[in-house]
Design a protein around this nucleic acid. Structure first.
Length: 474
RNA sequence: CGGAAAGUAGCUUAAUUUGGUAGAGCACUUGGUUCGGGAUCAAGAGGUUGCAGGUUCAAAUCCUGUCUUUCCGACCA
């Protein structure tokens, strides 16, 4: 039976999304537009994401730092493209409501300026390089339209900023971090992604180029999910980050930055969840298993606690729902919250020598012998759920990806059943603008490794340069 | 930032048209009986009607402003 508090995702996807956010207690609205409260369930997912990503960064030689929240105006403006790109959404600070500070300051929308200024003072020699830093923090961008997780004015993220002695090394870093994101999305979030290069029009303000991880949501809308930028010497020239190379020549350093945000929680919802609530992939679920005792007697209680101990010792995150709600209520609540595996332990089953185990993703219920090696069984089930979730998402994305050779095909697709459109492009920004007239279809990224599917641009018919994935974006 | 709609208890809402003691269901608290798909009985608590002004003997209701939310455009992770 469907959850009464949740609108069906096939009826109204936008409403369904916010219903899930509220029903699963991920976030709540505050009195400031675009600034939400991260509730325990939502924040726990973020902590898990942080834990995994942070481990990956550390393994590849990155160190965490923390930069100030405020950026002085003169620092912000040194690199022209960045400030031009961000100007409309930068929040400036006033004191006591009206009084401007002696030096105007803004709340960071991103921290390239702060890192670059810092690096300028630290980098003297090729021996100082590379510097590979990352920070976990909040940033503020004054968006017009907001949605929990997907687009908020304040959001949490990680931003990596690195400096290198050569362009080769910096470009490799840009690629490596893109791969890290891809691995994280596919192996942990169970979300298949497409990677590629942003067009000039869509790239990060101030970057030489931007690499991106793009995912397709259940409703066929695409979501830019993480980005990795190569800056070349753009920022080092603006901020004067110079070092002496091995030939004793003064040279500007090469930089990168890469980021991923709490938007990933939104992606998790829109790819996997259903009308009964959240569905979490086991590898990112703060709680992987819930044990629901049914009835209250010594036999049940001792079996529950020994099962709990075994699972906990083996590293499975598990909790016992000991509240005095009815079993049916607990089942429904575990489902809304997206707990991957539910173990129902009751007198009736124990008498028969069995346990009931249910998986959240398929809602399948199985009866297993109570003498089975529960740790092994649960671990295998968690792995199965993880890969099944990925495969289902991949299958859906394949179904929602279309090769197009004519604009009218794109129009037909975006009208009736949106998704990723693969089509050739000549490289002219005017053709991107034309494409945008079709329900706001934008280039998501340039596919770099796939074979061309046509020799003409789908918009103007001139010689095609790139195979591009197009989509309607969040 | 332009266009549209909404805001009454934690949630869903009644009373707004025609100004006159803000009422219910779910959730919550206490006690009992229950417990294998959102249990049930009894009692109880919870509101300056988003906020600020104005009109009036009287405002949830009418007027003005403002904030928040949702949808549609423009901007964006």
């Amino acid at each position: 039976m469907a959850n009464k508090a949740i609108t069906s995702r096939d009826v109204d996807f936008g409403k369904w999304y916010t219903d899930i956010v509220k029903a699963a207690h991920l976030a709540d609205y505050s009195n400031v537009k675009g600034c939400t409260v991260f509730e325990p369930n939502g924040y726990a997912i973020w902590e898990k994401m942080q834990q995994v990503l942070d481990g990956m960064y550390k393994e590849t030689g990155h160190k965490n730092v923390y930069m100030p929240l405020l950026i002085p105006e003169n620092l912000m403006e040194k690199e022209g493209e960045l400030i031009n790109g961000f100007a409309p959404e930068v929040a400036w600070v006033t004191i006591g409501g009206q009084k401007e500070l002696e030096e105007r300051m803004c709340i960071r929308p991103t921290s390239e300026t702060l890192f670059s200024d810092y690096y300028a003072s630290k980098v003297k020699s090729y021996r100082d390089l590379p510097l590979k830093y990352n920070q976990w923090c909040n940033v503020m961008r004054w968006e017009k339209e907001t949605r929990p997780f997907l687009r908020s004015r304040e959001f949490l993220w990680q931003e990596g900023h690195t400096v290198h002695a050569t362009s080769e090394e910096a470009e490799k870093e840009t690629r490596d971090m893109l791969e890290t994101y891809k691995t994280f999305f596919e192996d942990y979030l169970a979300i298949p992604v497409i990677t590629g290069k942003k067009t000039e029009k869509e790239k990060f303000a101030g970057a030489e180029y931007t690499l991106t991880v793009e995912a397709l949501m259940y409703n066929g809308v695409s979501l830019q999910s993480a980005t990795s930028h190569y800056f070349g010497q753009k920022f080092s020239r603006a901020y004067d980050i110079k070092f002496l190379n091995k030939n004793n020549e003064l040279e500007y350093a090469y930089q990168t930055s890469w980021g991923s945000t709490t938007r990933m929680i939104g992606a998790l919802i829109m790819v996997h969840s259903d009308d009964d609530g959240l569905v979490l992939p086991p590898k990112i679920a703060p709680n992987q298993v819930v044990i629901i005792p049914i009835g209250n007697n010594d036999k049940v209680n001792s079996f529950v606690s020994s099962t709990y101990d075994k699972l906990t010792e083996s590293g499975v995150s598990v909790y016992i729902d000991n509240s005095d709600k009815s079993p049916g209520f607990k089942f429904a609540e575990a489902e809304v919250n997206g707990i991957p595996v539910r173990l129902e332990i009751g007198e009736r089953d124990l008498a028969k020598g069995i346990l009931t185990i249910a998986r959240r993703d398929t809602k399948e219920k199985m009866e297993i012998s109570k003498d089975i090696d529960i740790v092994e069984y649960v671990k295998e089930l968690l792995n199965t759920i993880q890969s099944d979730m990925y495969n289902r998402a991949l299958k859906r994305r394949c179904k929602q990806t279309y090769e197009c050779h004519h604009l009218r095909e794109v129009e037909d697709i975006m009208n009736n059943h949106p998704g990723f459109v693969k089509a050739m492009w000549c490289g002219n920004p005017d053709c991107e603008l034309k494409m945008k007239e079709i329900h706001g279809t934008k280039s998501r990224c340039i596919l770099e490794e796939e074979q061309p599917i046509d020799d003409k641009c789908i918009v103007c018919g001139n010689k095609a340069e790139h195979l591009v994935i197009w989509g309607i974006q969040y």
